[in-house]
């Protein structure tokens, strides 16, 4: 059996450290999710308003944040904020900030899409039954929107988790950084550690994201 570098993981607390790194990545994404879900719903509601100024502004925000690679946004926050405003953001704070802004934009677009996907005649038949605007929204539109939205927002969570791997690039010590440190520290005793450790990180991400994707897929099939 050739040395594939897995045994490094069982030395000392290496595996626990790796999991700790994964914990950092998950913490960043969960905080960002918690911030961006309510803000995204708000943005989505704003975007369906007819008012031209709010429409254009929200649209611009959304398009810019969505078209830029998340890594560029991270650079802008991490390096740019220091330069322009003299804020010295920690890598983790910059990450949470960027993922929240990005998540808000994505969530806003999902909410807008879900609201607009409710067919016109649903409003008409609600009106024909004598429901007023608020009642129509509460009893007819909202339930349909929420069903459409939940699987899509769960998917957004997996995207968020996968994207947190990028925070390595602005110096946050997360799972991939920990992996690098472990490989570096053991380069003499197990020269092939890069294979086993990176494969493990790969599988860890899969183990986290796959069940969430399955859940989203399951709900989508049931509700759409």
């Amino acid at each position: 059996m050739p040395d594939l570098g897995f045994e490094v993981l069982w030395k000392g607390k290496n595996f626990a450290r790796l999991l700790g790194g994964l914990g950092v990545a998950l913490r960043i994404s969960l905080v960002a999710v918690a911030v961006s879900m309510p803000l995204g719903v708000l943005l989505g509601l704003v975007m369906t308003r007819k008012h031209p100024a709010t429409r254009i502004l929200s649209r611009l925000y959304l398009e810019f944040v969505r078209i830029m690679p998340q890594l560029v946004l991270l650079f802008l926050a991490y390096f740019g904020a220091t330069r322009s405003f003299g804020w010295d953001l920690s890598g983790e704070f910059a990450s949470i900030l960027v993922f929240s802004l990005w998540g808000t934009a994505e969530m806003g677009d999902l909410v807008r899409g879900a609201l607009e996907s409710v067919p016109r005649h649903q409003y008409e038949s609600a009106a024909a039954l004598g429901l007023d605007g608020a009642q129509t929204f509460r009893y007819i539109i909202l339930p349909q929107t929420v069903r459409r939205l939940i699987p899509l927002s769960i998917n957004l969570v997996t995207r968020m988790i996968k994207t947190t791997s990028l925070v390595l690039m602005i110096g946050v010590v997360e799972v991939l950084k920990v992996a690098q440190q472990i490989i570096e520290a053991n380069r003499m005793s197990s020269p092939n550690a890069a294979f086993g450790v990176y494969l493990t990180v790969f599988l860890l991400y899969f183990a986290v994201c796959w069940p969430i994707s399955l859940l989203a897929g399951h709900l989508e099939k049931r509700w759409l």
Binding site: K162, S165, L166, L168, L199, F202, F206
Partner: peptide
């Protein structure tokens, strides 16, 4: 679809 590109690249390039 359930793993990040960065990790895929690390594995390909260093692993």
């Amino acid at each position: 679809r359930n793993t990040p590109l960065l990790i895929q690249l690390f594995f390909l390039y260093y692993g």
